[in-house]
Amino acid sequence: KVLVLALYDYQEKSPREVTMKKGDILTLLNSTNKDWWKVEVNGRQGFVPAAYVKVL
């Protein structure tokens, strides 16, 4: 399983997205889209901007 680090806070803007806080460790589920990556955080799955996270 691939983990990513949240570099910035992100507030979800649609039901398909998830909120994350800077420093959160998320599970990367899909990174085929260069702009939006699907992650799991706190038991929820959704998209975050790829530029806001870094693969650990």
Results as ranks from 00 to 15, higher is better:
V2I: 14
V18T: 08
R16C: 13
K13W: 04
R16F: 15
V4Q: 01
L5V: 14
R16K: 12
I25M: 08
R16V: 14
Y52R: 06
I25E: 04
V39C: 06
Y8I: 13
E40G: 06
Y52I: 08
L5S: 06
G46H: 02
L7Q: 05
Y10K: 01
K21H: 12
V2L: 14
E12T: 10
K34H: 13
V18D: 00
L3T: 11
D9F: 04
R44T: 08
E12W: 05
N42R: 11
K21F: 12
T27P: 15
S31I: 09
Q45S: 13
K1H: 15
T32D: 15
E17M: 05
V4C: 10
V2E: 10
K13G: 11
M20R: 00
E12P: 14
K54L: 14
K1V: 15
L26C: 07
T27I: 13
L26A: 13
K22W: 04
L28Y: 02
S31G: 14
N42H: 13
E12Q: 14
V18C: 06
E12Y: 04
K22R: 11
N42M: 12
P15G: 13
L29E: 04
Y10N: 01
L3R: 09
A50D: 02
T27W: 09
A6D: 00
L28G: 01
V18H: 03
E12L: 07
V39D: 00
A51M: 14
E12N: 11
D24P: 00
A50S: 11
K34D: 12
G46D: 01
T32G: 11
P15N: 12
V39F: 01
N30C: 12
T19Q: 05
T32N: 15
Y10L: 01
W36S: 03
Y52F: 12
P15H: 14
Y8K: 12
E40W: 05
A50E: 04
V41H: 09
V39H: 00
R16M: 15
I25C: 05
K54D: 09
Q11M: 14
W36V: 03
L5E: 15
V39R: 00
Y8P: 00
L26F: 06
G43N: 07
P49Y: 02
E17A: 06
K54N: 10
R44M: 09
V53I: 10
E40H: 06
E17K: 04
Y8H: 15
F47C: 09
G23Q: 02
W37C: 04
W37T: 04
M20T: 03
V2Q: 09
T19I: 03
P15V: 13
Y10E: 00
L3S: 10
L26S: 03
V4E: 00
P49I: 02
Y52V: 06
V39A: 02
V48K: 00
L5C: 07
M20Q: 02
F47S: 04
L28N: 01
S14A: 09
P49V: 02
V2K: 10
P49H: 02
T19E: 04
E17H: 08
G43Y: 12
K54S: 13
V48H: 00
K38V: 14
L56R: 03
E40I: 06
K13S: 13
R16S: 15
Q45C: 09
E17I: 03
L3C: 08
L29Y: 04
Y8E: 12
E40R: 06
I25W: 05
V53R: 00
V41M: 15
Y8G: 06
E12D: 05
A6S: 05
S31M: 10
L26K: 00
E17F: 07
N42V: 09
K34P: 11
D9M: 03
K34V: 11
P49T: 01
R44H: 11
V41D: 05
V41T: 12
L26I: 11
E17W: 03
K21I: 09
W36T: 02
W36R: 03
V41I: 15
T32M: 11
N33M: 09
L3Y: 14
F47L: 10
D35E: 12
Q11A: 15
S31A: 13
Y8C: 08
V53Q: 00
V55W: 06
A50I: 03
N33Q: 12
T32A: 14
L5Q: 14
I25A: 04
I25T: 07
V48T: 02
K38C: 11
V4R: 01
K54E: 13
A6H: 01
Y52C: 07
T27Q: 14
T27F: 10
A51G: 10
V4A: 13
L56K: 04
V2D: 10
T32L: 11
N30D: 12
N42C: 08
G46W: 03
Q11Y: 15
T27H: 09
L7W: 04
K34R: 08
L28S: 02
K38P: 02
G43A: 08
Y8M: 13
G23W: 05
E40N: 06
K38L: 15
K21N: 12
T19W: 04
D35M: 12
W37M: 05
N42K: 12
K1Y: 15
V55K: 08
Y10W: 13
K54T: 14
P49E: 02
G23T: 02
D24S: 06
N42G: 13
K54M: 14
N42S: 12
Q45N: 10
A51W: 11
A51V: 10
V4D: 00
R44D: 05
P49A: 02
P15M: 10
Y10M: 01
S14G: 13
V48P: 00
K34A: 14
L56V: 10
Q45K: 13
V2W: 10
Q11N: 13
L29I: 12
P49Q: 02
K22M: 11
V55M: 14
P49R: 03
D24N: 06
K34C: 08
V48W: 01
P15E: 13
R16W: 15
K21E: 06
K38W: 14
L28C: 05
Y8W: 15
A6E: 00
L29N: 03
V55C: 09
V48S: 01
K1R: 09
R44S: 08
V39S: 00
R16N: 15
L56Y: 11
M20W: 01
N33E: 14
L29W: 06
L3Q: 11
V41S: 15
W37A: 05
A51Y: 08
E17V: 06
K13M: 15
N30W: 07
D9L: 02
R44W: 04
D24T: 07
V18G: 02
L29R: 04
E12H: 10
K21S: 12
Y8F: 13
N42F: 10
K13E: 13
S31R: 08
L28H: 01
L3W: 12
V18R: 02
A6G: 04
L7C: 06
V48R: 00
E12R: 09
K22S: 10
A51H: 12
R16Y: 14
L7T: 05
L3P: 04
K34Q: 09
L29Q: 05
S14V: 05
K22D: 03
E40F: 06
L26H: 03
Q45D: 09
G46V: 04
F47R: 04
V39I: 08
K22Y: 05
F47V: 08
K54H: 14
S31P: 12
L7K: 05
E17T: 09
S14L: 08
Q45L: 10
V41A: 15
Y52L: 14
D9V: 02
Q45M: 14
N33G: 15
V39N: 00
E40M: 08
K34F: 07
S14I: 05
I25K: 06
T19K: 04
W37V: 09
T32V: 10
P15C: 09
D24Q: 12
L56W: 08
Y10C: 01
I25F: 06
E12I: 07
S31Y: 10
K21V: 12
N33F: 09
V41C: 08
K54Q: 14
V55A: 07
N30H: 09
A6F: 01
Y10R: 02
V48F: 00
V48C: 05
K34G: 11
S31T: 12
K13A: 11
V4Y: 08
L29V: 15
D35Y: 12
V55F: 13
